[in-house]
Amino acid sequence: MSMSERVNIFLESDLLERYLMGTTSPMETQEVEHYIAKYPEVKQTYIELQENLEEYASSYAVAAPAHLKQRIITTIKKKPKRGIPVLAMVACGVAILFGLVTLMIWNQNQELLEDRQLTNALIEQLNSDIVSNKESLQSVEEQFMILNNAATKKYVLRGQGRVRKLETVAYVNALEKKSYVHVVSLPELPDDQVYQMWADVDGVMKPLDILKISKENLVEIPYEERMASFNITIEPKGGSKEATKEEVVSSVSFY
């Protein structure tokens, strides 16, 4: 097919007219633009068609209202050329919200951590109290057992002379081989003196313990076989290895 035949066939079709109206498909548009670019005759026809369109449309011209011009210009001025894109604004909003939520969650997390630490400390304290209470209970039970044991004997040591108010109760269980004292009251002594308890064993005074007011009702003291009596002396601070017999302030015999 010759070039002029091809051009004629193209011009005979209505492609160019439809291209003018903007109603061609993308493929048709490509074809028309190819013909316009390649064939001057087609280009000239297209130019004429455009002129016709303008002339024809202009023949129906109606005076456009003057106020419309100003309205259009005002509308256009209101629209910034490069405003902040809506998506960017949304993204900013989301980011700020995310930040705030994160901060809020972090704060809550910190508060929860502090609460947890406090709770842990309380639990630890309670555990410690339970252990302590158990030990106390066990001790009280033991003391109760001892005091209620038929083999336990009770000896009351009362002060003489200047320490008349001294009162100590001693318990001895020969079967269990255990000795306890309950210091009821101890008159005050100079800072360099203490009360010391002794057991008379075969005529020899064996040191048992230095007496102190204790929270515990009963304090275990060393048990000695063949004890004949308990004695309390006033000794220099730190206690003595041998009893100062002149300073015996209380004594109780087992027989």
Binding site: S58, P65, L68, I72
Partner: peptide, 28 residues
């Protein structure tokens, strides 16, 4: 161009008030 384009808008809409809105939207 407004007069010719306003004429087109009136021809299509057959309503001058609507044609004014069309012309404004088209210019934007």
């Amino acid at each position: 161009y407004a007069d010719a384009l306003f004429g087109v808008a009136i021809k299509v809409t057959k309503d001058e008030a609507l044609a004014q809105d069309v012309l404004q939207d088209a210019f934007v």
